[in-house]
């Protein structure tokens, strides 16, 4: 379980997250949404300890991530898989090496087992036979799928997706949404998807947290969100730029 307690985060004078609190239960499939620049990715990076909150605490499986040692934080992070907006694949490594890097460090698998897990992960994201390709040879959608393969290769308990479908065509978006759903149900994981794509919200989430002006504007089921009467939510759903809530 991830518990976010009264966290705030500012950059220079700009308040990005303002006293946010919510809980992510095991097995949740959450979409964190909001306008671009509202702090969704900052929230995601704060959850995994890449950014430290100015105030408040984040507790993962009863451990406050900002109070534990770096070694314990590293161990805790091994429970997570994170998919970055642009894949964040290591340029100097092949697709196979990108996926195998953490397997070499975090598991006791031998070379044969690692190769098998690389192949299986790539198969799950429909990217088989691409082990030897370099990231520069892949399209944006392929990079994101390899990013997902890299994350799921470690069988994480928590999957964090940072804008997994942004900038993709509708078919690729659907393909990524299906991967999120498949891995959520098959892997028995907790999924947190940061997005502003409504198709991803509809197809790949059961709970929605909407951020607005640094605070939580909405926290509820996806169905409730889609039928909400809250003017800010309605403006977001309708893409109404004239609304100044």
């Amino acid at each position: 379980m991830i518990s976010i307690n009264n966290i705030s985060k500012s950059f220079s004078d700009k308040v990005i997250l303002d006293n946010l609190s919510f809980t992510i239960n095991h097995g949740d499939k959450i979409a964190i949404i909001g306008q671009s620049g509202i702090g969704k990715s900052v929230l995601l990076k704060t959850i995994i300890g890449l950014l430290r909150p100015d105030n408040g605490s984040i507790t993962i499986d009863d451990q406050d991530i900002n109070k534990i040692s770096f070694k314990k934080l590293q161990k805790l992070r091994s429970k997570f898989g994170m998919v970055f907006q642009f894949g964040a694949l290591f340029d100097s490594m092949t697709v196979g090496e990108n996926i195998g890097l953490a397997l070499q460090k975090l598991t006791n698998c031998d070379r044969f087992e690692i190769n098998e897990r690389i192949s299986n992960s790539l198969l799950e994201v429909n990217m088989e036979n691409t082990q030897d390709k370099m990231p520069s040879e892949l399209s944006g959608g392929m990079k994101k799928r390899v990013g997902i393969a890299r994350a799921i290769a470690l069988n994480p308990e928590y999957m964090l997706y940072d804008e997994p479908t942004t900038g993709l065509d509708p078919i690729m978006t659907d393909s990524i949404n299906r991967l999120i759903n498949n891995f959520h149900s098959n892997g028995n994981v907790t999924s947190v998807v940061v997005t502003h794509e409504m198709k991803t919200v509809r197809d790949a989430s059961e709970r929605v947290i909407m951020l607005h002006n640094g605070k939580i504007q909405f926290d509820g089921t996806t169905d409730t969100f889609l039928n909400s009467n809250d003017p800010t939510v309605v403006a977001f759903l309708n893409g109404d730029s004239t609304y100044k809530g």
Binding site: G49, F86, L89, K105, R150
Partner: peptide, 18 residues
């Protein structure tokens, strides 16, 4: 620097690397 701005360093951290 390119690894930093393209989030590759963040990715390393999330994979439990120092």
């Amino acid at each position: 620097g390119t690894m930093r701005v393209s989030e590759q360093i963040d990715a390393l951290e999330t994979l439990s690397f120092d």
